[in-house]
Simulated assay, not measured.
Amino acid sequence: MVKDLKHVRFPMKMYRLKTFKEIKSIEGLDEKHLFDVIGRVIEIHCPEEKLINGKNSRLIDFTLEDPDGIQLMCTLWDEHVSKIEAFYNSTSQEPLLVLVQFCRARVCLKSGDVKICSSYDVTQLLFNQESPPFEEFRKRTSHEQTPMRIALSGDMEVRTISEIYRDKEFGDFWVAARIVFIDDPECTCDRNWGDGTLRYRVKVRVVDLDGNAPFLLWDRECLDLIGISADDLKDTHTKGRKGLPKELETLIGLNMLFRIAVRKEQFQKYLNAFPVMRIITDEKIVEKHAPELIQVRDRDLSSKLELELTDEDLWDIEDIDQQMKLKALSKLLHRG
């Protein structure tokens, strides 16, 4: 006889959880066996693209840690990449707990270590839930935790601004540049399901050793850079010498790695800004990928602000004010 059991404490979902120690034990490893694992994300690597059997595939690696400090590498493929990439592209709050459901174990050919990976389209990822597995994990976790960080591969390709404009290749790319000018910040409203959400955006002019371009920062980057949310900046800021919020003025002169989205509209008119997907401000990482930019002085970069108007059809009359700003800034840097 089968009866419905309705009880508030009866679990609606059950998992086949394996410990990290069990997974990393090569004895009895079955790569066809599906299981579940829970851990805290301590490192997320940059997404990559690879050609597998003549087909373009995407992957992203991240590292999990259990309450005992044992670490386990995880690789997600194709449609699963976006599930963790969202945390790579944002300033997520710690701790980031994830339960990977229906994953496989693999032996890494290079290191010989055991790692886990997604299994076709059946793998599921659950983040920071209040279910029993997450509550038990939190209770077992000590206060001394490995801090989460965003990892960049050592062979990460950093392109120059002139290469971006010359190649006209669409996609997401890393650029090492210095902020030299900031436009007045704007507020815009995104609507989702009838509710309006106020967002803050700041257009900046950046310069590298090869040229200059306008980049667009949103409230997420503002919070990451100056520690103030868009709403707080809008309501409480004090204006500096140039009429900008003083908090934003501190960004001028900073060297950063920008991950920008390159789309068709950026090449239709050169004053169309590149949206910034992510920023890296760590001096050691910036110096590793762009040592020459760290050493050069502001006035040596000023010549890169002179825009060559060889294609007049790319510019509108309304953009003259912006061009004048750039020329004035170039003269100011020369005097410095």
Rank of each mutant, 00 (worst) to 15 (best):
M1P: 06
H7M: 13
M12L: 15
M12G: 09
R16N: 11
E22S: 13
E22K: 06
E22G: 05
H33I: 08
L34S: 05
I42T: 15
I42F: 13
I44R: 02
C46P: 07
C46W: 05
P47A: 12
I52T: 12
I52D: 11
D61R: 09
C74M: 15
L76Y: 04
K83F: 08
T91L: 15
Q93V: 11
E94T: 13
S111I: 10
K115T: 12
F127A: 07
E130V: 05
S131H: 09
P132Q: 14
F134W: 08
E136W: 03
R140D: 12
R140W: 04
I150E: 02
I161F: 06
D167C: 04
K168H: 13
I179F: 01
W193N: 09
V202E: 01
V207C: 05
D208H: 08
L225R: 00
D232S: 08
L233T: 03
K234I: 08
K239G: 07
P245A: 07
P245G: 09
I252F: 07
G253N: 10
N255G: 05
L271M: 10
V276I: 14
E287H: 12
E287Q: 14
R297P: 01
R299A: 13
S302F: 00
L314E: 03
L314C: 02
I317H: 11
E318T: 10
M324L: 14
L326N: 03
L329N: 02
H334V: 11
G336A: 04
